[in-house]
Design a protein around this nucleic acid. Structure first.
Ligand SMILES: [Mn+2]
Ligand SMILES: [Mn+2]
Ligand SMILES: [Mn+2]
Ligand SMILES: [Mn+2]
Lengths: 221, 221
DNA sequence: AAATATTTTTAGACAAACCTAAAAAATATT
DNA sequence: AATATTTTTTAGGTTTGTCTAAAAATATTT
């Protein structure tokens, strides 16, 4: 597999993330995301087109080709493995890992990343709950997010609890929530960010913002 | 502390290493080291001079300023900590670590490096036996090298033995060599790379290339 | 369907980091 | 000391990635 410059990689990764929401990505959208000017986007899209990494027609937006997607998944794999390393091994806080991983992701030795993966025990999610692509670029399609970020009425399965204190576990036990519990968020109250959730056939219960921020769940997108 | 480009950092580090042997470094020397053309060296020296990182007078070579030395030690710290990480944690072999560290050394988050240092247990030497500068740029002046690389007639102290097999220890016991032994290499025979070494007042003894490659010693430079 | 507003592309410029070929300076040889 | 050789610098050019300002295409209003 060829090597790409840091700039090319940042563009490819940004397109990947943007086209997940939209179908195709526009020049202005990408310029805003990367904090560059639209003219720079056009320049780069021409280049990525000749390298067959994007489908691009002047004035009609662009999206990654199958090859481009493979490259993007490689970059995302590196980014998320480094984030996991920084949080888990070096004890960085969740908010700090992203900026450093933004640089580390461009060191592209395949052996380095595969050995790092092994050293970390083949983690499946980064510290933000996003899935880490495996060495073949396969990525879990279900997303892990905290309950606050779960879409309403989406069935999800509790996959992770970040605070393991006695107080937390006592509360979870009382509410009958644990790893594997299936639930849906029915309403979100903006006043205090409390949530109303439904667990199987039980009647809906209410949980505080504080609690919801420490519970993570997976759902299919 | 300011940030420097990958190119600037590679030049600064190369000057640091070259001026250790010579006093001042020449254009052609540095061009050979970095595999670039002399014209590129002149360009960069002008730039590094305006940034006050080198002392440079046209046609008369250059050397690092005190500021330039500080920058160099920061890069070398990052390089050697990553080499240690790769060898110790990711199980890379000694020969593989250098190339990857050549890239990782340019990720310049100070917090990243200080936390990595702590995670690794503040190692004092990289896998090649070179000392790792601490977070203030202090570096041990004594070098650890294998006997093959020891300068002739330099008093040195055995500091490390890489092969710990019974056969090795038997041989070392017979030759009366152990950690802490003071010795000097008196001659090197090019035919088989065997060495004649002197241990205190004993008469000189001969050791094979194979053995010498597994014995490391420190000396002041 | 025209007129207007927005988005995107083109044209041309600039800095960083490299190069080749020619000129200048320093060094070595006779 | 004059000449020849080697080293270093200068002059000018290329590629990558960015920018501004103007032109062209598309989308939205009236
Ligand atoms: Mn991230
Ligand atoms: Mn990045
Ligand atoms: Mn090295
Ligand atoms: Mn390097």
């Amino acid at each position: 597999m060829l090597n790409y410059s840091t700039s090319e990689e940042n563009y490819i990764k940004a397109i990947f993330h943007l086209q997940h929401t939209d179908g195709t990505v526009t020049t202005n959208e990408l310029a805003a995301e990367l904090k560059t000017k639209p003219a720079s986007i056009t320049d780069m899209m021409k280049k990525l087109k000749t390298k067959k990494l994007v489908h691009y027609q002047a004035y009609h937006g662009f999206r990654l080709s199958p090859d481009g997607k493979k490259v993007a998944l490689g970059i995302i794999r590196r980014h998320r493995l480094w984030e996991y390393f920084l949080a888990e091994k070096l004890k960085f806080s969740w908010e700090e890992v992203h900026a450093v991983a933004e640089d580390l992701e461009h060191v592209s030795s395949k052996k380095l990343i595969d050995k790092l993966d092994e050293f970390l025990g083949f983690p499946r999610f980064d510290p933000h709950g996003d899935p880490i692509p495996d060495m073949h670029g396969r990525i879990e399609t279900s997303r892990q997010v905290c309950l606050q970020d779960l879409p309403l009425n989406k069935p999800a399965v509790v996959s992770h609890v970040s605070d393991q204190s006695n107080e937390m576990l006592e509360l979870l036990g009382h509410k009958k929530i644990g790893i594997g519990t299936r639930l849906e968020v029915k309403r979100k109250f903006n006043f205090d960010n409390s949530l109303e959730i439904k667990i199987r056939q039980q009647s809906p219960i209410n949980i505080s913002e504080q609690l919801s921020k420490n519970i993570f769940a997976k759902y299919d997108e």
